[in-house]
Each structure stands twice: as C-alpha cells, then as structure tokens.
C-alpha cells in the first residue's frame, strides 16, 4: 500500500508522468539505493490507480521520443489519501521470519544438530550487528543540516535493530527453558463425516 499511496500523494502535489513520478519518489526516500521502484511497478500501479478511479490521465507530454501520459488525482483519490493519512500504520511484529525459523529448528531438534536454535540465534546476531554497524556509520556520515529526515529514518532502523538484539539476548538466556517445553501442536479436528462407533 505504501508505494501506491506515496505515488498518489506525489500526484496530488502536482500532476506528473510516470518517469517524473519515479524520480520524485526515489528522491523522497533518499535515493534508489534506499528504496528502488522499477519502472514497471510505477506503470502497473498507475494503471491500477486509474482503473480504481483514483487518478485520471490529464494529457500527454510529447517533446521528442515516446509520448508521456500525465496523471492527476481525482476527488476519489484525494479521499483515499486522506484516509491513509488519518490511519495509523500497522506494525507487523508477529509474523516474524526469525521466530518461525527458530520454531522450525526447535521442531527439527536432533534431526539437524549442526544448525540448532543456538546456531539460528548466532547467525541472526551476527547479521544484526553487521546491519547496526553499517547503519551507525551511515547515520554518523549524514549531514544534520540537510538530511535530518534521513537521519531520523536511520535512527528508527537503529532502534529496531537494537531492540531485536536485546530480544535475542533474552531468548538466548532462556533457550534451555524453551527447549524443555513442548512444542505447540495443532488442534486435531475431526474431518469429514463422523466415524460410526463400532462396538
């Protein structure tokens, strides 16, 4: 949803064609090294927005080369954008890849002794420290006079990685206790017709 709504917002700022839209989006997020959108994604999104009546073609810009269709936001698109701004963004913390990886490693247990939960924790810790090291370097290299928004974004990422590392620490400290507990089992529900009871 976020790319779609961001594009909608940039079209509300002023009507643009796809190429310009892509450049504006990438500038906003601090460059395509941060968040790259492929041209195809821009054009697919524009087509979907148009289909949903949220944007409309306003004209064509033709200098040299192929014609560039210019899009503008409709009143419906404006309402959609307002709704986006008025709603909080959901934090997707429970559908966590590391957690499920860890649970699968617990489930496999002695079938995979060389890559047990302890190894999963270590590999993740190493990865997160690597990220934190790079983020810290980027943050310290950013210029607070012109890149304050980017700095805050980096701060957010740093705080999240820090929280993940602290969580890993807790997990590691209690790993033996976790291993001692039974794994959650699916609830067995009877399927199909109930079997006849035979005496």
């Amino acid at each position: 949803m976020s790319v779609r709504n961001a594009l909608l917002g940039l079209l509300l700022q002023h009507p643009r064609h796809g190429y310009e839209l892509r450049a504006a989006f990438e500038a906003l997020v601090g460059g395509k090294q941060n968040w790259e959108v492929k041209p195809a994604q821009i054009y697919t999104t524009l087509a979907r927005l148009e289909e949903a009546g949220l944007v409309v073609q306003q004209g064509v810009e033709q200098e040299s080369g192929p014609a560039k269709r210019i899009y503008a936001v409709t009143p419906q698109g404006r309402a959609e954008l307002d709704a986006w701004f008025e709603t909080g963004v959901e934090g997707a913390h429970q559908r966590d890849e590391l957690f499920v990886k860890l649970m699968v490693s617990l489930a496999l247990g002695s079938d995979i002794p060389e890559v047990g939960p302890q190894q999963v924790i270590r590999a993740q810790r190493s990865r997160l420290y690597q990220e934190l090291h790079g983020l810290t370097a980027q943050r310290n290299a950013a210029d607070p006079k012109s890149e304050l928004a980017q700095i805050f974004l980096l701060d957010k990422a740093i705080m999240h990685v820090e929280a993940d590392l602290r969580w890993l620490e807790l997990l590691e400290a209690r790993l033996d206790d976790i291993c001692d507990q039974p794994l959650p089992e699916p609830e067995v529900k009877p399927r199909g017709r109930p079997k006849k009871m035979i005496d």
Binding site: W35, R95, E131
Partner: peptide, 20 residues
C-alpha cells in the same frame, strides 16, 4: 564490515513489512 551493509530504508521497509 561496513561495506556489505544494506541501506537503512530497505531495512526499515523490511521491519515494517511495507511495500506494495
């Protein structure tokens, strides 16, 4: 090693599970 690190926004995106 700093050179192999992902950028912040990609990371933030991953954390948030955002993106179309």
């Amino acid at each position: 090693d700093t050179s192999t690190t992902e950028s912040a926004v990609m990371l933030a995106e991953k954390i948030q599970g955002m993106g179309d």
